[in-house]
Structures are given as structure tokens and as C-alpha cells.
Write a protein that binds this DNA or RNA. Structure first.
Length: 322
DNA sequence: GTTAGAATAT
DNA sequence: CATATTCTAA
């Protein structure tokens, strides 16, 4: 019934975060110390939940407290992520300042929040790798996301597989899932079922391996590894972001609102580029130029659903080897 | 208080 | 590397 639709629509509208909320859509990964050091406060009036940082496992001082072995082997201890926060985005001295604070040390990795975009990249990477090479390590390397560790990918991969499995069992007739890519809101299960995964288009690789054989038949790669192209324009902005992220993560503890399925609001400004490895160096072909198992870069294709405004394709940074 | 998600352990 | 369990955050 129409009324029904109107009903849910109303609700959806209500839940629709204001553009401003979407704007800073990013991971809220920031170390407590850093936040404090910068006295970061989110413009969000309601910040009931304490920051998602658990106090570092600073044990309650055992009898003999040996000098805490500082895992100084944490080079990029900052799971960096994009933040278009205009507030301190300009602060280029994110890492340098801090008044002598040493951010990249003694700071434990808070938590990784898999934002749809990040997941998108994840799926993308897996899709290009193929089930065969869809191993955490490779995925991690292919993603080239700064701060992302193998453990993170493995954990997420695990869940992703589960999600796929569930989808398989549920798909009764017609591969509804397959249509996800085009329609976007094809046969969408309840929003409560899967949050992140549902929002990401499944390349179709992981759905039923095809009965009858073809165990390891590699699927064609729909993706075309674009050659390295420097896009001046925007690049600088991104560089700053990357630098900021690399130096220190600056993000608002704001909630990352899960935008179910992207409708097509007039604004049409969603999705923000996330930060990739700050690879200052040009792409290096891994060993042999003969075959390129690992594409140097890819283009991030956004939802095709953007009727109103012409959207710009975001180009991801080249992958810097680890 | 419950559920989901991520981290950690096996 | 994969799976199971556990902990934390929402």
C-alpha cells in the first residue's frame, strides 16, 4: 500500500542525518591522548558515550613493575582515516605539534570501525583478488589502507564470509543479491539483518560457486587497473588529509550514521574518499612487470545512482607496498 | 539489557 | 589461514 510506503519513508526521512552529519562521515578513530592533547571536542552536543577508547592495558601495578615494554615497533600507530572535519582539518601541524607529545607511541589501537566505504574497498579488493587469493594478507596489501592490519581484515573477512553464506541460504529464487549492484535496493533484507555488508554491493563472486564444477575458475576481472595518473586538483587536499592522518588521526567522536541504502537525495553528496597509504613513492611494480597480480591502483566507483548531480569519480591512491 | 562488531585466542 | 570465543561499543 502506498500508505505503508509513506510510513516507512517518513521514518527513513526522519532518520536521515542532516548533510552536516554526513559531511564528517568518517571513522572516528582517535587516540584518547591525542584527543585530549588537541582538546578535540565534537560539535555534536550529544556525546553521551565516552570515547571508544579503552584505557590502555595499564595494569594495576603488580608487585614488581617491570618497565613496560613499549611496543616501539609500531610505526604507523595511527589507524588513519579520512576526516573532512573542517575544524581542524586545516591544522597541518597535527603530528608535529602536541607540545611535545609523542602520539605515535604507547598508544594502543583503539578500534577499527568498518565504515561502508572501507568495507566497499574491502569487497572490492576481494573481488579483484578472487577467492583463491582472497586471503587476509593479500587483501590487506591490496587495500593499502593505512592503519589496517591483517587481524582487522581477517576478522572482517570472517564476518563477510558468514554474511555471504547466510545470503546463499536465503536466496530462494532469482539471485536477488546479484541485482544489488544495479538497483541498489533490490531485494533488501531487513535493515537489522546485516548492516554493513548489506550496504555493500556483492560482486557476485562469492555467491554460489556454480554447481557443476569450476572449482577454481577465475572470474574475469571487471575491474580495470588504471595506470597511475596524477590528478592534480584535489590531490593536494587529499595529501593534506593523508598527512594529517599519518601524523595523527583527527576525527570527531561523532556517531557514524549508517546510511542504509543510498537513496537519491538532491544533494547527492555521500561517500568520502578514505585514506589510503601515504605512498609518496610512485608505484613500484612488484618484481616482474610481466604479470600484475596486484594492480597498482584502481578507481573507486561510486554508486551509479546519482541522477541529479554529476558525481565525480574518486580515484584512489596508488598502492604502496607495505 | 540486547545486539552487533571487532579483537583475540585456539 | 580459518574458526571459535570473548570483549567492547552502540
Amino acid at each position: 500500500m502506498r500508505e505503508d510506503e509513506s510510513n516507512w519513508f517518513s521514518r527513513w526521512e526522519e532518520e536521515l542525518p542532516s548533510p552536516e552529519e554526513l559531511m564528517p562521515l568518517s571513522q572516528t578513530l582517535i587516540t584518547p591522548d591525542l584527543a585530549l592533547a588537541f582538546d578535540i571536542r565534537n560539535n555534536n552536543p550529544n556525546n553521551p558515550s565516552s570515547p571508544q577508547n579503552q584505557q590502555p592495558p595499564q595494569p594495576p601495578q603488580p608487585p614488581h613493575t617491570p618497565p613496560p615494554p613499549p611496543p616501539s615497533s609500531l610505526p604507523p600507530a595511527t589507524p588513519t582515516h579520512p576526516n573532512s572535519s573542517a575544524e581542524f582539518a586545516d591544522s597541518a601541524d597535527l603530528g608535529s605539534g602536541a607540545g611535545g607529545e609523542e602520539p605515535a607511541r604507547t598508544l594502543k589501537r583503539p578500534r577499527l570501525v568498518w565504515t561502508p566505504q572501507l568495507h566497499k574497498r574491502f569487497v572490492d579488493a576481494v573481488a579483484h583478488l578472487g577467492i583463491k587469493n582472497a586471503v587476509p594478507k593479500t587483501i590487506m596489501q591490496l587495500m593499502s589502507v593505512d592503519g589496517l592490519t591483517r587481524e582487522n581484515v581477517a576478522s572482517h573477512l570472517q564476518k563477510y564470509r558468514l554474511y555471504l553464506k547466510r545470503m546463499q541460504g536465503l536466496s530462494g529464487g532469482g539471485s536477488g543479491g546479484g541485482g544489488g549492484g544495479g538497483g541498489g535496493l533490490a531485494a533488501s533484507a531487513d535493515p537489522a539483518t546485516d548492516h554493513l555488508f548489506a550496504s555493500s554491493p556483492v560482486p557476485a563472486h562469492f555467491l554460489h560457486p556454480h554447481p557443476g564444477g569450476r572449482p577454481n575458475s577465475e572470474h574475469f576481472m571487471p575491474f580495470v587497473p588504471v595506470a597511475l595518473q596524477q590528478h592534480h586538483h584535489q590531490q593536494q587536499q587529499q595529501q593534506q588529509m593523508a598527512a594529517a592522518a599519518a601524523a595523527a588521526v583527527a576525527a570527531h567522536p561523532q556517531y557514524h550514521r549508517q546510511v542504509g541504502h543510498f537513496g537519491s537525495p538532491p544533494n547527492g553528496q555521500f561517500e568520502h574518499p578514505f585514506l589510503a597509504r601515504q605512498s609518496s613513492q610512485p608505484v613500484h611494480r612488484m618484481g616482474a612487470p610481466l604479470h600484475n597480480p596486484v594492480p597498482g591502483s584502481y578507481v573507486e566507483d561510486l554508486e551509479s545512482a546519482n541522477a541529479t548531480g554529476g558525481r565525480k569519480v574518486l580515484t584512489l591512491f596508488p598502492t604502496g607496498e607495505d
